[in-house]
Simulated assay, not measured.
Amino acid sequence: MNGLQFVSQQLSDANYSVASLDDVLGKYLAFEGDTVLGFVLAFPDAVSLIVNWRTRSQQVLKASQFGLRRSEAKAWNAYLVLLATEPADYGASITLSAIEEDLTGTRKIARAGVATEADARSALLPLLAMQNAPQLDAVDMASEIRLRTSELPVELIDAFVSGAPEATMLQMLEAGQ
């Protein structure tokens, strides 16, 4: 199974419609969900991704321009997922981060070292639903409020926590001036 197959499976499992497409430069994926659409371009290594991503992505976007126009609001939430199979060195990792910060035309996910299904899942996390809901401990709100409002008079905080009327708290504030 190659990298695009891993990505295709992850996106399909996340309820995206996925299509494998070809052009003169090779295969790529197109995907669409309820609010998001995008394209996945694969490169053998980070250097070829860095050198070729802009030209390759412009070609894919130009070929899909009419579909993007028909997608209306989703076009504002379009992604380019740029993946390299081989890991990147430090310098290339910095450049990949810079590519992700370039929001011209689309949002971007640029990752290197995507060789396994787990790597593909990790790269696609911004597009996948939250896997595990966070578990939060119960919080004693009265204690938290008292802890975080150390600059206010204790009587005012006690009135607030006990649910005193606003007028009472305003009188306490005026009296404290």
Rank of each mutant, 00 (worst) to 15 (best):
L21A: 08
V24C: 00
K27E: 07
A46G: 12
A42V: 01
L25V: 09
T55V: 15
S17E: 10
L29D: 02
P44K: 14
A30H: 10
L49V: 12
V60L: 07
L25P: 01
V40K: 07
D23N: 12
S57N: 02
S20K: 03
G38T: 01
A42H: 12
A19Y: 11
V40W: 06
N52Y: 07
E32F: 04
S20C: 00
V47P: 03
G38E: 04
T35H: 11
D22Q: 08
A63M: 13
V47H: 12
Y28S: 05
L41D: 06
A42L: 02
D22E: 08
V60Y: 01
D22Y: 00
V47G: 03
L21E: 14
L37W: 08
V60A: 04
W53I: 00
T55I: 14
E32K: 11
I50H: 03
G38C: 03
L21V: 11
Q65S: 10
S64D: 06
R54S: 14
V24S: 08
Q58L: 14
D34F: 08
F43E: 09
K27A: 05
S64F: 03
L37Q: 13
L29T: 03
S20I: 00
V18T: 11
P44R: 15
V47S: 14
R70F: 14
G26H: 01
A46C: 07
T35D: 12
S57H: 00
